[in-house]
């Protein structure tokens, strides 16, 4: 009996192995089929264009974007020698410096006051978040009116308090600041909403416990609210930071890079190079440089910032 039974068992064992292997293959296939849509979309709209941009940045092109002469890294060399690009780089960094802390501080303040339990607070929350629903173009037109040198409300206000009018968008001293102010205003909606969400997810027991312990308002703000909000703050800072580097719409609407290239930010510079001057090679090289800048700065931010963030 034993001798007869053995081969049967052998076959069963082999079968079992084959079946588990087959199931593994099916599992892998299933996994990839779920991954396929995003791989496809990313390849089509992200990886291919990125590769194409790198490729283009090594060539000179004709006006329809067809490569003509291979120049290697010459595009990059020329860019860093160009005073216009260096000026654009400087403006971009200044712009980031104005808008990121500006937007974060203002919306943090708004989120903290809108987090109080008061009657009708929903109205204020809606108001503060509303800029999120306004397109850059519409907001720019609105600010264009505010900034208007003669009929704009800002100058009229200055007139009332007896200060000389300012050429908000025409004065090289002011143009970048004006664009930054309007950008902060446009960003507040999103950052406010995210920060308010972060504040609301803080357990109210912590505040009650602190109340009983005798902690004051600012002590609670410093010891509970800010540390507990730090993951949200970090997220918002990173996103606003990247967004600031990529600003284009309001520049195009408000100043078109002027006056004296004061607001000639990098993305606007890329746009001009590519679609005004038809220098697709140079534009691509600038785009790659911007990409590397954002990448490196974000990595640095993660390295420095994550240490101070308290994840739950």
């Amino acid at each position: 009996m034993n001798q007869v039974a053995l081969p049967f068992k052998q076959i069963e064992a082999n079968d079992l192995e084959r079946m588990t292997k087959k199931q593994k293959r099916i599992k892998t296939f299933k996994g990839f089929s779920f991954l396929a849509p995003s791989v496809l979309l990313f390849s089509l709209f992200l990886f291919y264009p990125l590769g194409r941009t790198i490729y283009l940045s090594l060539f000179l092109t004709n006006s329809s974007g067809i490569t003509t002469v291979f120049v290697g890294l010459e595009n990059y060399q020329n860019i860093f020698l160009s005073p216009i690009f260096l000026k654009s780089l400087q403006s971009t960094f200044l712009f980031v410096l104005y808008t990121v802390p500006g937007a974060i501080l203002v919306s943090l303040f708004l989120a903290i006051i809108a987090n109080e339990k008061l009657k009708g607070i929903g109205f204020f929350r809606t108001m503060y978040a509303s800029t999120m629903g306004i397109s850059t173009a519409a907001a720019s037109v609105f600010w264009l009116f505010l900034f208007h040198p003669t009929i704009g409300w800002l100058n009229q206000l200055l007139n009332v308090i007896g200060v000389a009018p300012i050429g908000w968008l025409t004065d090289p001293e002011w143009a970048l600041i004006s664009v930054a102010i309007s950008t902060v205003w446009m960003n507040i909606g999103f950052t406010f909403l995210v920060l308010l969400g972060g504040l609301q997810s803080i357990d109210y027991y912590l505040y009650e416990s602190a109340d009983i312990d005798g902690a004051g308002y600012f002590y609670k703000l410093r010891r509970i609210t800010l540390p507990m909000l730090s993951p949200t703050l970090f997220f918002v800072i990173t996103v606003t930071f990247i967004n600031a580097f990529q600003t284009f719409g309001q520049i195009d609407m408000l100043t078109r890079g002027g006056p004296q290239n004061e607001t000639h930010l990098m993305v606007y510079s890329i746009y001009q190079e590519a679609f005004m001057n038809y220098q697709f090679g140079t534009a691509s090289a600038q785009a790659i440089i911007l990409f590397v800048f954002i990448l490196v700065l974000t990595i640095i931010q993660f390295k420095l910032g994550e240490r101070k963030v308290h994840y739950q």
Partner: peptide, 17 residues
């Protein structure tokens, strides 16, 4: 609460994470 001179233990402990 802070002027009532009492302490309180909460159901979920309310420890600061």
């Amino acid at each position: 609460p802070k002027d009532r001179h009492l302490s309180m233990v909460f159901q979920n402990y309310a420890l600061y994470p």
